[in-house]
Amino acid sequence: MYLFNKKAKTMLANLFYVMFGLILAAFFVIAVFLRVESALGDSTFHKRFYARDLALLVDSMHASNGYFVMEYDVNTPDNMPLDINLEPDHVFLTDRDDKPVESRAKTLFRIGFNEYVSVNKSNITVTPSSFKIIFENNSIRFD
């Protein structure tokens, strides 16, 4: 006595294939969500981006004359507060923390400085908003 005839066997194999496909799809969706979430939840990209962008902006300001103020927007997720620091030779960003800035992991990018323009030390604590970059009397500061 045959338990399954030919048609039933094919249908059962089909069912296995569909089940396999569903399980694979579930793993796939989970893997994609985890990957996207890890990319979005990690502040590394934001820190790298803003460190480079701000440092190169300050760098380019060394070719300037006069007085001007720039409004710089920072768009980071609400749960990703960053501290932005300007030093005479570099810009660095850290995750906001209770620890002193010196003991935090820094993401920095260097500025090409010279003796004609002074870069004043500044610290910006960012809650998704904006701050000013001021070039005045051959000195640059964040405010």
């Binding site: 990957r35 990319a39 790298r48 190169l56 760098d59 070719a63 090409g112 010279n114």
Partner: peptide, 28 residues
Amino acid sequence: INLFINITVDPKPLQREVLFNRLIYSPN
């Protein structure tokens, strides 16, 4: 999807533009 999730920042093209413009426009 991994290809389009870009968490690297390559500043080289901008770096060379900034340097070039500093050479051309900087006082002193």
